[in-house]
Design a protein around this nucleic acid. Structure first.
Lengths: 216, 216, 216, 216
DNA sequence: AATGAATGAGGTTTCATTCAT
DNA sequence: CATGAATGAAACCTCATTCAT
């Protein structure tokens, strides 16, 4: 472990190590949000050093969440830029792989939501929201290549709605089972996955067919 | 202030007063979750007294959330038991009135989700989930009278999915505006409402039409 | 359970029931001093009623301790008033039966000692000490009939010293084993008893022989 | 006040300062056990800092007690290692100096006894007891050089019994006067000292002479 | 006399953050 | 840059005691 990340690259490496450590601990102890001390130790650095890389604990958690979101959008953009037409199944698979099956994604997203209301300065929130909305719009626009949307906003909308569905259903179906899931070391609850599949299909069907309806 | 709520009714009144106070403080200070001491003061009773009515702070918040949920389901059941056929617009109006426009409903629901993973004993969580699922099933079954579902579970599913959509979209569209909204004392963000409307219609359309699709 | 102990006798009965309950709970939960609420419930009365019979929790514990002490002295006086000459073995047996084997006697005595320094008004302490010293002197005087003491204070001294030995050794040998003892439901630790036996014999030998020594 | 006790030595100094403060407060306010907050203030550090040095309040009190015990044994061992033969008077003087006249020794020992039954984990208790018994055995063995014991355990026994006598007699004779004594700022109660002297002499006489008795 | 709901002081402990080294 | 000891606010919860009924 280099003591002085002189370069920007080294700095980024440490940030990454901290986020990795935080998520690792989250998965290991889903019953509580790890404290800064534990995260630092797990990342192999001192507690005070954390504050050289993140303004606050909330800032760290928000960054971890944003990394999750970013990874999903990166995968989505990559896929959407390929020529072969995407299907709903492709979308669901992508979703499952980069959101549902990333252990801390949804519970962390839930916590972030509570966090944003308090403990975080409005500027930080706004910046975060703008980055997220930028990605959303880009991805939504690309989706139009693959699906027959009425207009360009429909892609953005569907993404947004799908994400919302994922998150909201997780509260109903994921949390109670959460502890069991982690305890058993198994994958995610089949019920949540089944229901999510169902819901996403209904939502997309409802959106994609509305065009046809209006034709009729 | 009566020193002894002799009757069970009086006891319930105090519980209610405490929950009211907690929600009032939530709305007044959305930037932080009030501590027990403040809630007690706002309700005009001593801190220790709170613990005669709720096992812990988390228990109180969970009860406040459950009261929200209960109020929605009560209204839904009442409407569903009336003979006149419900429309999707009725559903959306009901939803808007008892969920979206209840100030602390969605942010509290968000917090509860984080809370249930920790700080609350599994038994309490299970009991809460069972009551909620009981209400959900009852309401879902009644909905079949009004909509042409494929089968009885479709009603339950749609409710669940609708609730999920509401909650999840809230994170994307509600939270950032949340503080501004409360600060201005205005009504809810139009964007969240519009989008929710859109999303719910798509979801319901997708579910209700799937039957016809299979016919075709 | 009569609601109004009109007579002094009935009052005494309730006091007794409370002390019984307190000691029962002590034995059942040696790991903590029961709170007033539990004692009251175990005695079948309301919490507030306790304060009609004892000025405070400390007062109750002190009374329980004094009952222990009183029982021992009563037995000692009774035996000492019988004509047949007592032996050291008689004394040790008496001691064992009324002190060592009364489950809460020694730990409570230990607690009382801490209590008297604080939480109890000097008047109460003085009254308690005077009653105790009265019994001690009476018993000590009677012992002279049975043992060849140099003078009358020697009896009092020996009693006092013996009690001290019991209590002090208890701290060294009793407490660590205490939990195991209660946990196993067995009688007292053999080590404590053996050592106490040893110590008491040495003490008495040293006192009774000192007379002979001075003769020599 | 240095912010960082860099060395292990400095750390030990702070521990010592905390124990000193706790004992100082005990002596100044014998009517109550100081809370951690007061101890911290008296030591000139923050409340939270106490928990960097002691796991809990009980842990602190136990450490203070152990320091008392340690000081006595250290003095005893030092004396016992000198060539000149010890007398009973030497023992009594040592005892008086390091136990009886250390203001908080005996009342704290009394409290510890109550504490060990609760509020302290069995492991901590066991570790403490083992250290204490280690010192006791070492000291007891050394005593054989100076006194004509039947066997090596007699030394250990006598120490144990003497300590018990001190502690137990303290409850009878020390505690009632305790507050007055401290209040007056005078030395210890002469009665307790006289009686302890008496008792110790009888005990030792009884043990040391038993050998001769058996000879006769 | 009896009750038990209400009280609220009192205490412990945690932990995000700072800052002297 | 890195450290980690120190901080001290913040929060929770208990329970002996009171007192209106």
């Amino acid at each position: 472990m280099p003591r002085r990340p002189a370069t920007e690259e080294a700095r980024e490496e440490r940030r990454t190590a901290l986020l990795d450590a935080a998520m690792r601990l989250w998965v290991e102890h889903p019953e509580r949000v790890s404290n800064v001390s534990d995260v630092a130790r797990a990342a192999g650095i001192a507690k005070g050093t954390v504050y050289l890389y993140f303004k606050s604990k909330e800032d760290l958690l928000l960054a971890a969440h944003e990394r999750h979101v970013e990874a999903f959008f990166d995968a989505l953009l990559e896929r959407a830029q390929q020529p072969e037409r995407m299907t709903l199944d492709d979308m669901i698979a992508l979703t499952r792989h980069h959101i549902v099956e990333v252990p801390a994604f949804l519970p962390l997203a839930m916590l972030i939501s509570s966090l944003l209301d308090k403990s975080v300065t409005p500027e930080v929130v706004r910046a975060f929201e703008q980055r997220k909305s930028g990605r959303l719009n880009a991805a939504g626009a690309l989706l139009c290549r693959h699906f027959d949307f009425e207009n360009v906003t429909a892609g953005v909308r569907l993404l947004m709605q799908s994400y919302g569905l994922m998150l909201g259903l997780w509260q109903l179906l994921g949390s109670a089972c959460c502890s069991q899931i982690y305890a058993n070391g198994e994958a995610l609850s089949p019920d949540y996955l089944t229901e999510l599949d169902n819901a996403l299909r209904a939502l997309w069907r409802g959106t994609l067919n509305s065009k046809d309806d209006s034709h009729a």
